[in-house]
Simulated scan of single mutants.
Amino acid sequence: MYSTTPTILALSALLCSFSQAGELAPAEENTSACDFLKSIGEVYKNDENPYIQELTFFGRFQWQYGYTEGEAMDGEDFDEQYTEIRRLRAGVEVDFLKHFELKTRLNLEQGGPDNHRLGVDDFDTATLSYKVDDLWGFEDVEVSYGRQKFTLGAESHESSRKIKTVERSNIGNYFYSGKRPTGLLVSAERFGAEFNAGIYSTEDDSDFIGGWNDGEAYYVGIGYGGWQADFLYNEVDVTDGEATEDDIFEFRWASSLAYQFEHGRWEILFNALYGELLDGEEVYGAVIMPSYFLIEDKLEAVMRYQYAGSDGNNLRLTKRYAQEAADTRKGDENHTIYAGLNYYFCGHRSKILTGVEYETLDRDNGQDADAVTFWTAIRMYF
């Protein structure tokens, strides 16, 4: 255990220095201050070397504070606050033999809300990829195998480094939930569209590369213009209504259709999600998220409305932090509305996010819960 105060003060000072550079320093000094985060991890790069072309280290630090209050389904009021190192990751990427890439990333925070403990927790990702510019008429072809980030839903396609809200939406996390399955993924571009197809192990008991003893799931994704469609089919073994234990996906099948567009300082995201759980009940929802730069590239306002529904009581309050503070009783309908302000010191590489969200959770027997959660977060990566 340790105190996070010195770390937070140091990071705050660094963020302030970027802010002052942007307001007071000449343009070339401001550029060099931000370029430091871009280049600090670049150890070696030589495209002419036939053996090793590039060696890069990278990492991210995300700290946040949350305060939540509301009424749980049992009628009890709750009122809690939390601090958390949300993500602390470090990794390395090696490009070699012209077409291969080895990339690994470690999670270095073992605690959780109000439990700050540093140390290697597990591998976030670990992949070996083969890349070629042109193959059979397809461009930017990449074949990767290993422990990978699974994407289904618009918010999961955006890295946690670049999401505009402190936490992804409740329904977005329900379908995605930070899954890291072992699998083979193929991606390529043609006709102006990006195609992705993969096969994943459903095993959920590994901190590194998983095995293939439990079953397989199949994924297809297509992106074109501002559209993104995802579909997952889980070849799950169900006996007497009970699925194989430790299935990582928790869905028989799941789908998402999203559209995102920009116009001037506006950016708007629409996302609909629908799926069937292992017990046969269905879960569905939608997200609408507009954002607008009040000060171009610096100060951004973000709004988000989310609806989630279920055949049965399969939904909870938002995990961080209303679910932590309230009881764990589930419901069948969840509404949330989020409003936030983000300040970018060096784009997404150095920023502060603030947000407040109001949500309700209803149960089919008439019980309900509600919560208001306030967040503030520091996000940095290199």
Rank of each mutant, 00 (worst) to 15 (best):
S206W: 06
I40Y: 02
V143K: 01
E155Y: 12
L152C: 06
K131M: 11
I222W: 03
D279T: 07
M380C: 11
T373S: 04
G198T: 10
D370Q: 03
T318W: 03
I52T: 14
E282T: 15
D362A: 13
S129D: 08
G41A: 02
T31M: 08
R265A: 07
G119D: 06
I171S: 04
N170P: 04
N196Q: 15
T127H: 05
A13N: 12
T56D: 11
Q53P: 00
P181M: 13
A308K: 11
G198I: 09
L315G: 09
E155S: 03
Q323H: 14
V141W: 10
Q20W: 09
K45R: 08
L257D: 12
F78Q: 02
I199D: 09
E276F: 07
Q20P: 09
A10E: 11
L11R: 14
A25R: 07
A10M: 09
L273M: 15
N271L: 03
A188D: 10
L317D: 07
K149E: 05
S19W: 14
Y2E: 05
N170I: 11
F249C: 11
Y65Q: 04
A27M: 02
A272Y: 13
Y65M: 08
A90K: 09
T165M: 12
P113M: 00
G211A: 03
D121V: 00
G146T: 05
T7N: 10
E300T: 04
C34E: 04
K298T: 15
D77N: 06
S19G: 15
A217W: 10
G91M: 00
V92F: 03
T4S: 03
Q81I: 01
G275D: 13
L273Q: 15
T31F: 07
M1S: 08
E300M: 13
G340W: 00
G137Q: 10
Y51F: 13
P6V: 04
H335V: 01
L152A: 10
Y233I: 14
E194V: 14
Y274E: 02
V220H: 12
A326G: 02
D133P: 13
Y259W: 13
V186T: 15
V283I: 10
Y305G: 07
F195H: 14
I222Q: 08
N365R: 04
E203C: 01
S156Q: 07
G211P: 01
L341W: 01
E93I: 04
S169D: 03
Y292G: 01
Y358W: 05
R87D: 07
H348E: 14
F100A: 08
Y305P: 09
K131I: 05
A188E: 08
G137M: 12
D95P: 00
D364K: 14
E48G: 09
D368R: 02
I199K: 11
I268K: 10
G275E: 13
Y338D: 07
F36G: 14
G111P: 03
D95Y: 02
